[in-house]
Design a protein around this nucleic acid. Structure first.
Length: 150
DNA sequence: GCCAACGTTGGC
DNA sequence: GCCAACGTTGGC
């Protein structure tokens, strides 16, 4: 199977592309939405490419690129009762939530803002641009990826 | 900070 | 299983 493409959202005040650049690599924790979880658990594979999206930002938009270096495994934050992502319903044997590990690849010179994305031809159907769409992990088609990288 | 859109919860 | 209430996301 070929390489796949994703978009993952983070609030830059919590974790930005600059943090990833500094850390070189991180695990993407705190995803607490079942649809996004299913992507992390079942579909995101090592080598896949990821757009790092800044949400709740000024401006919001795609800030750079990361690469998946480790596939889905149990999110440690779900077992930590002091963590905001703690989930008392989850057990070590049957974890509910998953993370993947990402490595820094590239930071764009300028963020590609939501506004700009909406104006680019060929992205009209992009999941990110759908009204009311709130998934924090979502697939990006190869066509969309190529258009945006260009 | 507001609020639209959507997901989740829980009473029935 | 329906659906109102509530919580969260995220653009503005």
């Amino acid at each position: 199977m070929g390489k796949k493409y994703w978009l993952m959202k983070s609030e830059p005040e919590v974790y930005s592309i600059d943090h990833l650049k500094r850390d070189k690599k991180t695990y993407w924790d705190g995803v607490r939405n079942y649809q996004a979880r299913n992507f992390l658990r079942d579909q995101v594979k090592a080598g896949d490419q990821v757009f790092f999206y800044h949400s709740n930002a000024d401006p919001s938009g795609i800030a750079g690129i990361a690469e998946v270096v480790r596939e889905g495994y149990s999110d440690p934050s779900q077992f930590d009762s002091k963590d905001v992502h703690y989930d008392s319903a989850s057990t070590q044997e049957k974890p509910i939530w998953y993370v993947v590990e990402l490595a820094f690849v590239e930071k764009f010179k300028e963020i590609i803002s939501l506004d700009q994305l909406r104006k680019i031809k060929g992205l009209e159907k992009m999941l990110l641009l759908r009204r009311g769409q709130r998934l924090s992990v979502m697939p990006v088609s190869q066509e969309e990826w190529n258009i945006i990288v260009k």
